[in-house]
């Protein structure tokens, strides 16, 4: 019995080995195993690769956003020489030497999500944090009728995404002279901190009308803080996570800007494989901003596992 099992496993391994040797492989690098955004990106990559008859090998640091781990994973990939690489740098500056190693090995690399500060890329696929933040904030300004008091929950100070989102929020607020920004404090993209910071700020500003959170985790934390203390305010977030969509559906949350990890994973992998096959590819793909609210949440309520990648003709090209 045990021997049969052993042979079955060996057989499967051999099959996997030959399949891998025959087909193309795409090495996909993401930042961590904790953020659902990157999980969606990995699913998108798997989907696109499967549709094009290729395999994906996922590289995710065990310690979230670890620079040394991603660097050693790159060394691993340089030895294994996959057909192409889809790359999210854990740090947009610190990973440049790693990208140069991939370039030296002659592997085509597509940069997705966070734009690397250097290195050669076949293409960049991403969404603009600034635009997403500004458009989502405008949705809130509209709901407030252009007047009221608002609070910003910032991401991690120093992170590129947090700076751009903060700028987008502030520019949208500046367009509305009737809206006052009463506090802007960091919640570091964490739900617990988003909740606790909101609890603290509510002590000083119980009459707040709107909350602009730099991601959905903090937005949900803020919603909990508001509900627990018997206050109410319109809340927006960014990422269009399942939980935020549920809150939007239930009428608790106003809107969430969609960063669309699934699409980025799809399109990044499609471009990577096309480049490996020497087919034409766009130099950059900027995903259009979608603000998800009660009027258009339905497609987002479908789990990423059940979504399909777009056709190549439908990919926005620039």
């Amino acid at each position: 019995m045990r021997r049969t099992l052993l042979f079955a496993v060996l057989g499967m391994l051999a099959a996997a080995g030959t399949a891998r040797a025959d087909g193309e492989t795409v090495a996909v690098f993401t930042k961590n195993q904790t953020n659902p955004f990157f999980a969606a990106e990995r699913v998108g990559a798997e989907r696109a690769a499967a549709a094009m008859g290729a395999h994906v090998i996922q590289y995710v640091p065990t310690k979230p956003d670890s620079i040394p781990e991603q660097l050693s994973e790159i060394d691993d990939v340089v030895v294994k020489k996959p057909s192409a690489v889809v790359f999210v740098p854990v740090d947009y500056k610190a990973m440049v030497p790693g990208v140069q190693r991939l370039n030296a090995a002659g592997i085509p690399v597509v940069n997705i999500t966070d734009r690397s500060a250097g290195g050669d890329f076949v293409a960049f696929v991403g969404a603009s944090d600034y635009e997403i933040a500004k458009m989502t904030a405008r949705r809130l300004m509209h709901a407030l009728g252009g007047k009221g008091k608002v609070i910003i929950l910032e991401g991690v100070r120093g992170a590129l995404t947090a700076q751009d989102r903060l700028r987008g929020f502030k520019d949208a607020i500046a367009e509305n002279p009737g809206v006052t920004l009463v506090a802007s404090q960091p919640g570091n993209y964490q739900r617990l901190q988003g909740m606790q910071v909101m609890e603290n700020l509510l002590q000083a500003h119980p009459d707040v009308d709107g909350v602009l959170a730099a991601n959905d985790a903090m937005a949900i934390g803020a919603l909990d803080a508001l509900a627990d203390s018997g206050h109410s305010a319109q809340v927006i977030g960014i990422n269009a996570t399942r939980e935020a969509i549920d809150a939007i559906k239930a009428g608790k949350m106003l809107a969430s800007g969609d960063y669309n990890g699934f699409l980025q994973g799809c399109i990044g992998t499609m471009i990577a494989l096309r480049a490996a096959r020497h087919e034409s590819v766009p130099k950059s793909v900027a995903l259009p901003v979608v603000v998800v609210d009660k009027s258009n949440y339905q497609p987002y309520a479908v789990p990423v596992e059940k979504r399909a990648c777009p056709k190549w003709e439908d990919v926005p090209q620039h």
Binding site: R157, A183, Q185, P186, A204
Partner: peptide, 15 residues
């Protein structure tokens, strides 16, 4: 410390 910084609105960079 966190409560105080939020109430006094200490700039995020300095927290």
């Amino acid at each position: 410390v966190l409560n105080g910084m939020n109430l006094l609105e200490v700039d995020a960079r300095w927290q």
